[in-house]
Write a protein that binds this DNA or RNA. Structure first.
Lengths: 224, 224
DNA sequence: CCAAAAGTGTTAGTCGTACACCCATGT
DNA sequence: ACATGGGTGTACGACTAACACTTTTGG
């Protein structure tokens, strides 16, 4: 490989995160407002250019910490975006990850060196975003639906436990369907992904609901 | 973004393909022998550096055509490999795709501008490969197993149709299991992915077997 | 004691699995 | 005619889906 070949010059790697949360049945995604060009003043997914001395996932976590203060979270690859002119600065290949977290576990920085605002925004109220981030987010939402059905991704939303009515609302909200309470409970338990605790918590009703947690090494099984 | 920041300099993108086929119940992968450094004379997956004026998948297809003559095939992303020193030349982020094809449809070039040999090699007889390609191939095989079970990936191996005994052997060979003939047939038909033709073909027995083909827009359903 | 949501069990239907016999062809 | 694999149907068990009543708590 000839490093001097101009076709190999002037390209970089963008790491991009579609980080979701669910609050009161509303699925939200984390976006920030850009302080500098390109796209100064526009909202965007948390993203940035990869350094040449860090791995992709580490670079993304660095960007997340720098721009929002959020750290120590699970993120997984979902696609590559490589249109030639997706960045106005130079050719950047976008590597996009998604994750889902309990927003209450973090203090979201509203302003940082490179951002002037940050917020969790309902996915049906997303403004125009910088770069190709609207397209990326649209794909992320589709992949999110598949992954909560086929893997234990939701364990990252509920590291402190959850009640059945609560997590059922999350499934129903993200997938846009409704489930029978009794069958939902049976199916989720039958995956072996979760176990009962001896805690209870009130959700919407007055009667307290049992708290469940995800197993440490929960196998990926189809949920719905 | 400051293009001059040295942390953004000297990095490139590698596109890598794990291209599989199945022949007489043996799963094989396409590898080439490298004509030039780095790793001159070593076997490797088909791969190369991405140009700054092409999309990732286009770059990979260009490399495949240049190095093997194979073109017009389906390839899908399966992972990113970004260890800092995975290439001795410079920092290269590897973007790895997998596919499966009917090798009889192509004439494999044994020597090209950048290769001195090429072959389909059984996955349990893979030599030491250049870069981190052994690791990448290992992951590709795992993902291949998942994708033939959960998607219609195998349609790309059988664009001209297949018989039940034939495709059953492929599933059994890749997954390392055996299935009951009658139940296999019922399950594959029940996915709606395939349909009968009026052709027949001999496979291993003397009695001719019906030829089936994959539907054009076959939904992704779990197969096994 | 009433309202509101949480918890539980049974039944019918569907799907997966196990299994045995006949069929078409080449030699 | 026989050997070889290809094609089909049925019965049993497991899982999925539909459905109604009782329980706990706050107000």
């Amino acid at each position: 490989m000839d490093k001097k070949n101009p076709k190999y010059q002037n390209q970089g790697i963008h790491v991009i995160s579609a980080l979701f949360t669910v609050e009161k049945g509303i699925t939200k995604v984390l976006i920030i407002k850009r302080k500098y060009d390109p796209y100064q003043g526009m909202w965007a997914l948390v993203s940035g250019a990869l350094y040449n001395d860090e791995e992709v996932l580490d670079g993304l976590k660095r960007e997340l910490k720098e721009k929002t203060g959020i750290e120590n979270i699970h993120l997984e690859l979902f696609n590559i975006f490589s249109s030639i002119h997706r960045s106005p600065v130079m050719r950047m290949v976008g590597i996009a990850y998604l994750g889902i977290v309990d927003k209450e576990k973090f203090h979201l920085l509203k302003e940082t060196l490179k951002t002037t605002d940050a917020d969790w925004v309902p996915i049906d109220k997303i403004p125009l975003l910088a770069f190709d981030h609207n397209e990326i987010l649209k794909e992320a939402i589709e992949v999110l639906k598949v992954r909560i059905r086929k893997t234990d991704l939701l364990k990252h939303l509920y590291s402190n436990g959850f009640t059945m009515p609560e997590i059922q609302k999350v499934y129903e909200s993200i997938l846009g369907v409704t489930f029978d309470r009794r069958n939902f409970r049976k199916k989720l338990l039958s995956t072996g992904m979760i176990k009962e605790t001896n805690r209870v918590e009130r959700f919407e009703g007055n009667k307290p609901a049992k708290v469940y947690i995800f197993e440490e090494n929960s196998m990926d099984k189809n949920v719905f």
